[in-house]
Amino acid sequence: MNFIPSEFAIGDVYFPPLLIAAVLGVILAWLTAKQLNRYRLSRFFFYPPLVLLAFAVIYTVLIGTFVIPS
């Protein structure tokens, strides 16, 4: 199985797949953080900024691997 995502073409402009995955990953991590703040679940984390970065990385890897077609 090939896990390497292919390039993204928007209007004939080619974007690296990692850029798209990273942008979506950061947006999803930010939305998750907003919800965790809202429902007061953020208090269970020791250091939230690192958790936010971790979320961004996890989402980026997941989107890059499973959402962006290879």
Binding site: A33, K34, L36, N37, R40, S42, R43, F45, F46, Y47, P48, P49, V51, L52
Partner: peptide
């Protein structure tokens, strides 16, 4: 305690 809660 609520004010002090760790937040993102």
């Amino acid at each position: 305690p609520r004010v002090r809660e760790a937040r993102f």
